[in-house]
């Protein structure tokens, strides 16, 4: 057993004592009841369980929770699908996902949303050329599996957010 504390969607959680072999996915879903983060494969193959880790240096990355021990998140700050909308307002990415019919069953959506959000924040810091947009979006999302949509509309929705604000995301 190890006692951990962490920040989820800006709110402190813990200290809480957990088994060392408990996955982060089970910590979120079974211990905290935060089921917005999904369980898909348990093998880091589908990434429906990915959350955002915000590093101290200001960078962020997604990480699958199904293959990571919860204890490795001690002291970390993470964001989950439940934390994107603020003050009753959806983020532009959330809104575009809905408008573009990006998802169908929606089970992979939390992973795609987190991945897309991290990409947007990365491009804000390091804008890319318009000519690279399709490739960069495709590379960013390729780890995520979706069985319903054929992916096209997810990619369209992410690109739509970027193209709606080129000054922010494009060099």
């Amino acid at each position: 057993m190890t006692t951990i504390s962490l920040t989820i969607n800006g709110r402190p959680q813990g200290p809480v004592a957990i088994r060392d072999d408990l996955t982060m996915n089970d910590f979120l879903r079974e211990v905290l009841g935060m089921t917005g983060t999904k369980f898909g494969c348990g093998a880091a193959q589908c990434l429906s369980c990915a959350v955002i880790i915000d590093e101290a240096d200001g960078t962020s990355a997604t990480m699958p929770t199904c293959i990571a021990p919860a204890v490795s998140f001690d002291g970390k700050a993470i964001r989950t699908v439940e934390g994107h909308a603020r003050d009753g307002r959806l983020t532009p990415l959330q809104a575009r996902f809905i408008e573009h019919f990006a998802f169908q069953c929606g089970y992979c959506t939390p992973g795609f949303l987190n991945e897309g959000q991290v990409l947007l924040e990365r491009l804000e810091k390091a804008p890319i050329a318009r000519a690279d947009l399709e490739r960069v979006v495709a590379e960013a999302l390729d780890g995520h599996l979706c069985r319903c949509s054929g992916y096209v509309k997810y990619h369209e929705a992410v690109r739509a957010v970027i193209l709606a604000d080129p000054a922010r995301y494009l060099a």
Binding site: V81, F101, G106
Partner: peptide, 23 residues
Amino acid sequence: LGGPISGRIDGVAKVTGAKLYAS
């Protein structure tokens, strides 16, 4: 959550991680 007026009926629930699925 005031979602977009077009799009899927189930859209807001699915992009906010609402409890929805049997699991």
